[in-house]
Design a protein around this nucleic acid. Structure first.
Lengths: 316, 316
DNA sequence: ACCCCGTCTGCTCATATGAGCAATCTGCCC
DNA sequence: GGGCAGATTGCTCATATGAGCAGACGGGGT
């Protein structure tokens, strides 16, 4: 009867879920008591024969979120569903949307939000609704894009987020990476820059994304590094960058000399922050995500299902 | 609020289906009354955001079956689910299994079952359980495979089905297609053959499959026709063959001269039968399936979801 | 400003479902 | 064949859910 039972549970499931019959009705159809039907149904669910999916761009995966929180000690985890997604493009958009949602629902509302810049952050800024918060000041936490043609993206991101929250944006008027250490020290001690760094250090929340360590990095795109230099960093163990700083799989700085010349808040400041939100999505960023979460660089992670599962070591 | 409502229904669905919360609990989490939650959930289902799939090789698609019955006037339709299926191979096996299940559950139990032969029917015979019926005689309804190396497949199929039902198998001792019309007439009037044909004509149920019209047909494989001859039939409008006879999309005989030389029951006999079960699966057979169902050649169709949807004209 | 009509809300009540328990059955060892 | 342990069954009772309805609400039209 072992086989019969499984088959019956499938028949029952068809009638229950596809034909919306009551367990009672199914009972009389299959010549079973309604309790047996209930048990068959429970068994079918337990055996995983019944798959329930929520098909919507804004759908999240709460069970995965909980497992992530439990496994990593994150204060919070937001995982967007990746069912029915075409490419990384759409996945990143969904993740950015989720980050925007998370920010909007955040309580207490941060007074000052420190942000990095990049494609992802820009995406988040676009997904935020006008009036998402009743007054939040935004401050950049690392040097901006100013060398390349897309100049202004970083500034626009900060300005948009602040504007939509009826707050002020403070930009960090400096390159991300300086060529000479002396220049970096000089610019760092400039009153205008120092003030921003100070404000950044005192932000009540941080929001940043991460770049993968390859020639597609925004830092390469912006002209701060050459593809060769990044290749060298990868050889030294770099898995990606956050706020302009390259880290290895343990979340440690890969190249101290380069890091010295990088302007913006220190990783330690992020690690000490009580609220640091990392927004990371796409299969290319699984490694950075692992490094960030593993080394306590964020307290909240917003990501996609695939990345989350990679962090959890799920197969499939 | 239109957008908010949809988002809320998704949040509610996550909590309900992924976290097994009660609508009440969800209500207090989302700050809604439990009735609102119920409505949101109903709305999410209605909008198709909640997809419930039964993942099991023996799972059927009852709603599709009903639509098929309603749209075509079939007495019954059995549609196996094609979720998570690798190739046609697996689909055909599932369909054969379903046909075996259907035969087993059939009431009243037919006294004599007329069957054709082929890969599909053989598959069905293997899926039947020993003792599937308390006595059913089996009779072949068209000429058998005897020209090629796989000789005996047809005989084995009939014998297996009969044996497992504690009944007798009657084989049709004749080729499927004769080269000359006179030979056909001669063999047809032979006592041994005529008796079988008579028994076949009086069967209480028929079970047969169909072949697609191309060089992979079992008739080509068995050496009754050459690939060229089949190509010619296709040019004349053939979409496939059943019981050795090639039909066009209207279920009409394509080549009367060839058909005259084909030995076995007439299509009209199938059309008049009160129980004619066609077992058809695989994307290559959508066209034949349409011809068979459309021209009333079967009263019961056992098929896969894709074929069923093709018959119904569903997109997706 | 007023009213009307259609929609939405929160309710009552009937029904469906799940938890837990005692009775029964089944296989298994002696 | 007897008796025992664990599984399985059918039940009672508490709970969750869905149908249907009366009142509140909203947004045009006059």
């Amino acid at each position: 009867m072992i086989d019969t039972d499984e088959l019956m549970s499938i028949r029952a499931a068809e009638l229950y879920y596809e034909e919306n019959k009551t367990q009672d009705e199914i009972g009389s159809i299959l010549r079973l008591t309604r309790w047996k039907v209930g048990r068959l149904l429970a068994q079918a669910k337990a055996s995983g024969f019944i798959r329930i999916e929520i098909v919507h761009p804004r759908a999240r995966r709460l069970p995965v979120e909980r497992r992530l929180r439990e496994a990593t000690g994150l204060k919070d985890a937001i995982v967007v569903s990746s069912v029915g997604v075409a490419g990384d493009e759409e996945l990143q958009s969904r993740t950015a949307q989720a980050a925007a949602d998370y920010l909007t629902g955040l309580r207490p509302i941060p007074r000052t939000l420190g942000i990095s810049w990049g494609r992802t952050l820009h995406d988040v800024s676009l997904h935020l609704k006008h009036g998402w918060a009743p007054g939040v000041d935004v401050v950049q936490i690392n040097g901006g894009v100013s060398l390349n043609k897309r100049a202004g993206t970083a500034a626009t991101t900060a300005a948009t987020i602040a504007h939509k929250a009826f707050g002020a944006a403070t930009l960090l008027p400096s390159p991300a990476i300086l060529e000479r250490l002396e220049t970096k020290h000089a610019i760092e001690s400039d009153r205008a820059v120092a003030a921003v760094l100070e404000q950044a250090a005192g932000a009540s929340a941080y929001l940043y994304s991460a770049g993968q360590a390859d020639e597609h990095s925004a830092l390469v795109d912006s002209g701060y590094l050459s593809a060769d230099e990044v290749g060298e960093l990868v050889r030294k163990g770099a898995v990606g960058d956050i706020v302009g700083r390259y880290i290895d799989k343990n979340g440690a700085i890969v190249d101290p000399e380069l890091d010295e010349r990088t302007l913006g808040i220190q990783l330690e400041q992020l690690r000490r922050a009580s609220l640091a939100i990392a927004v990371i999505s796409g299969s290319a960023k699984h490694a950075v995500a692992r490094a960030i979460v593993g080394s306590g660089l964020c307290t909240v992670l917003v990501t996609d299902e695939d990345t989350a599962r990679a962090l959890l070591g799920d197969d499939v």
